[in-house]
Design a protein around this nucleic acid. Structure first.
Length: 457
DNA sequence: AGCACGCACCCTTCAGCGAA
DNA sequence: TTCGCTGAAGGGTGCGTGCT
């Protein structure tokens, strides 16, 4: 292993001493803890490498007594990464030690190393490369098998094992928690075994994310209050107490669950979902008014329908041309209700853009005035929703904690789902999600650190 | 829009085989 | 002889595509 330390920088470490005595072939082959004894080209293009572990002693797995007495040496063929674009046939000369403790029931035991653990038939670095391809590159296991000449089950087990090394959520310090739902498969129908009735099953999953970093802390089945509370109750008291804000979608189930387990924590409602409710309201008004005016659904020759995307776009980010087109739509007396609904939507956006409590309270007065002027069932319903979530909206304005990171995590999850063409084993699905996320978070943290180093130079 | 089809991938099962 | 790692085989599933 390359150590960026040298005598001129610091005192030589144990590993740098070993590096210094390694022969050139072992340095190039670079299998941690092993030295190359021989290497040759094979007639069909591969290469055969024989290697032996550096360590000449080992502790008995039963009694722990260290032994140097070799009972026999076996040649074990193991799989390994290719070197220099060539496949490698790796042969390990593996010693079998005699236990030095006379009282120990075990007579002999074989050598175990980091690269070749108990019973292993491929090196740890080969498995690590396959796991990296799956979790970092998003490569399907199926194709990873072909690249590394491993079986599907071998790689899948390695990926699952890797997910087990992820720090438990209780070990991750979290200030702001994001909870979000997503459907991970199409709705399914099944016949109830007793009543023989057809039941619709929506395969929902809920994701728990560190809202600051986007690191996925957990994934649970379903999106009901009970599923959320169960996960929260599994956390330690200390972990729950460090939470300051929880960001959720406007869902009563989520709010109830958080209130139940964390009565003291502040809840922030995700502004993106609130804006979406405003856009939904505007679309409902547009569709209703079009039906009333034209007696049919909108078509591309109707200006309101043609500019439906323009209506939904943020008003303050419209181009002059876009604003002009919108004004032409609103000039039509038949569509003044659409214009009123648009004004309500824009007031809602302004309300969410406020940066402090006095500003958001003023913005709410403008919003309520627009709602009163519009005087429609759709806008009244939106105003009722805003009233219902007013406390949570104020928390969002004050803390600016959102579910944006959760949403991006969900995009990643959907990508995994698409690659997978349908996971049936939830355990595999979860280990892929958590494994991918934890690696992404590690990369994100590393990049600013490295940029900082460059800046110092 | 609805449907059929095939691809790409997941996942289980099972047997071979080498290590213990 | 037993254990368990490993790979092959084949069934199952979701999605994209192209046709009607």
């Amino acid at each position: 292993m390359f150590q960026p330390t040298g005598p001129h920088l610091s005192l030589p470490t144990a590993s740098s001493v070993i590096d210094a005595v390694r022969d050139p072939t072992s340095v190039v082959f670079n299998l941690d803890g092993y030295q190359v004894l021989a290497a040759c080209d094979l007639p069909l293009g591969g290469r055969r490498v024989s290697a032996v572990a550096n360590s000449v002693e080992a502790a008995c797995p039963d009694c722990g007594v260290v032994s140097t007495r070799v009972h026999q040496r076996t040649r074990q063929k193991v799989k390994d990464l290719g070197v220099g674009g060539k496949d490698i046939e790796l042969v390990i000369i593996k010693p079998r030690f005699l236990c030095a403790e006379a009282a120990c029931a075990r007579r002999t035991f074989t050598q175990v190393t980091d690269q070749l653990p108990f019973r292993a038939r491929c090196t740890a670095r080969l498995k690590a490369a396959a796991v990296e391809a799956v979790l970092d590159e998003g490569m399907p296991i199926w194709r990873t098998c072909a690249r590394y000449q491993l079986g599907w089950a071998t790689i899948n087990t390695a990926v699952t094992a890797d997910a087990l090394t992820i720090p438990a959520p209780d070990m991750v310090p979290v200030r702001a928690l994001g909870i979000d739902e997503h459907r991970f498969a199409r709705a399914k129908w099944f016949k109830h075994p007793e009543t023989a009735q057809w039941c619709r099953v929506e395969p929902w999953m809920s994701t728990f994310v560190d809202a600051d970093t986007g690191h996925i802390l957990g994934v649970v089945d379903g999106r009901s209050s009970a599923n959320i509370t169960r996960w929260l109750k599994q956390r330690s008291q200390a972990w729950l107490e460090q939470l300051q804000v929880v960001a959720i979608d406007p869902s009563s189930a989520f709010r109830n669950a958080v209130r139940q387990v964390l009565p003291a924590v502040e809840i922030s409602v995700d502004h993106w979902h609130v804006v979406r409710l405003g856009n939904q309201m505007l679309t409902e008004v547009r569709q209703r008014v079009t039906r009333e005016v034209l007696g049919r659904r909108g078509r591309k020759e109707d200006s309101v329908w043609a500019h439906r995307m323009l209506l939904l776009r943020a008003g303050d980010r419209l181009t002059d041309a876009g604003l002009h087109r919108l004004e032409q739509v609103f000039d039509d007396e038949d569509y003044e209700q659409v214009a009123a609904a648009w004004a309500v939507k824009e007031r809602l956006r302004a309300l969410l853009a406020a940066r402090d409590i006095p500003a958001v309270q003023n913005a709410r007065i403008d919003f309520e005035m627009a709602v009163a002027a519009a005087d429609m069932a759709e806008t009244d319903k939106l105003a009722a929703t805003v009233a219902k979530w007013w406390t949570e909206i104020k928390v969002f304005v004050r803390t600016q904690v959102t579910n944006a990171r959760t949403e991006s995590a969900n995009t990643g999850i959907k990508q995994i789902k698409r690659t997978g063409r349908g996971f049936r084993n939830q355990k595999n699905y979860q280990s892929r999600i958590l494994g991918t996320s934890v690696r992404q978070t590690r990369r994100r943290r590393r990049i600013p650190h490295q940029q900082g180093l460059h800046a110092q130079r």
